[in-house]
């Protein structure tokens, strides 16, 4: 199965927020009460019920001119994903397309991923004690459809397809734009499955780290110490098995009888 990626060409985004709404519609995410805080950006950030948003940002060109930047912000679907690394229950996992999906049933609400993600994407919902985030519309892409946000985009700023093909498009577009334009996403965390074409320097965009990386603490615990803990866990299981062989299963029938007798009296 070939890797799939989403391309987000910010030079073509008009900030219409069709992607933001289409995501909520496909994933049946409820709206929450908001207020205008002096910006078009609303909800103010990614939320358990908001898996992608357009970030609105004004930058001055120094000559009295102004650029209004729109950035589609959603899960980057890293190849070396900190969230998958730290997830103790297996809820966050890689799919056959290379994207990072979430099995809510397995999520135990530990919030490890919230702190590990360099893009601050997973959001914790206290009402359900679960993490929620974009899964690149796995239900759609597994049925040969593009993600809902891509489907809704009226300008072609969002594209979806095979990794090699889309990356080619991205580099061609960055070259065409020239100046400070660059491709963002394929050079770190072993490549993300959402890739930007940024018309401005990467450092300019709000909440977009210039050099994102998996936190060292995550690497230390999960890559170096986890194998040791697995070894220990394996020892426990082997010991239990040995105990079963030598002593046989635990007999609980006697206890059960006792309880039903007490209930009858």
């Amino acid at each position: 199965m070939s890797e799939k990626i989403k391309l987000c060409d910010l030079s073509k985004c008009t900030g219409c927020r069709g992607c933001q709404l289409a995501c909520k519609q496909w994933n049946q995410l409820p709206a929450k009460q908001t207020v205008n805080t002096g910006t078009y950006q609303n909800p103010p950030d990614l939320q358990p019920n908001t898996w992608n948003i357009i970030r609105f940002q004004e930058i001055s060109d120094g000559n009295g001119g102004v650029d209004w930047l729109f950035r589609h912000d959603a899960c980057m679907h890293c190849t070396d994903a900190a969230c998958v690394k730290v997830c103790p229950s297996g809820a966050l996992h890689y799919t056959k397309y290379g994207t990072v999906a979430l099995d809510s049933g397995k999520c135990i609400g530990c919030k490890e991923c919230v702190f590990a993600c360099p893009f601050e994407v997973p959001k914790y919902d206290p009402e359900t004690d679960k993490i929620l985030k974009c899964d690149m519309c796995y239900s759609r892409i597994d049925n040969d459809m593009e993600p809902a946000c891509v489907k809704a985009c009226p300008t072609g700023a969002l594209m979806f397809g095979d990794k090699t093909e889309i990356l080619k498009v991205a580099y061609e577009r960055a070259r065409e734009l020239g100046g400070d334009a660059s491709v963002y996403g394929d050079k770190f965390v072993d490549g993300t499955h959402m890739v930007y074409v940024l018309p401005e320097k990467a450092g300019i965009y709000d909440k977009l780290p210039e050099k994102p990386r998996v936190p060292l603490s995550v690497i230390a615990w999960k890559d170096w110490l986890k194998p040791l803990s697995l070894l220990a866990a394996g020892g426990v299981i082997a010991g239990s098995f040995l105990h079963y062989i030598t002593h046989g299963p635990k007999d609980t029938s006697g206890d059960g009888d006792q309880v039903s007798k007490e209930g009858g009296e």
């Binding site: 927020r17 933001q20 709404l21 909520k24 519609q25 409820p30 709206a31 929450k32 009460q33 908001t34 207020v35 205008n36 805080t37 002096g38 910006t39 078009y40 609303n42 909800p43």
Partner: peptide, 29 residues
Amino acid sequence: CPWLAEMQPSMFVEIGVELAKNKGIKNGE
């Protein structure tokens, strides 16, 4: 439509930085 109301929940007025400064108006008030 809740999804639309959530994105643009209220009446606003867009004011240039110079005018806001003259009037002592802060963003979001």
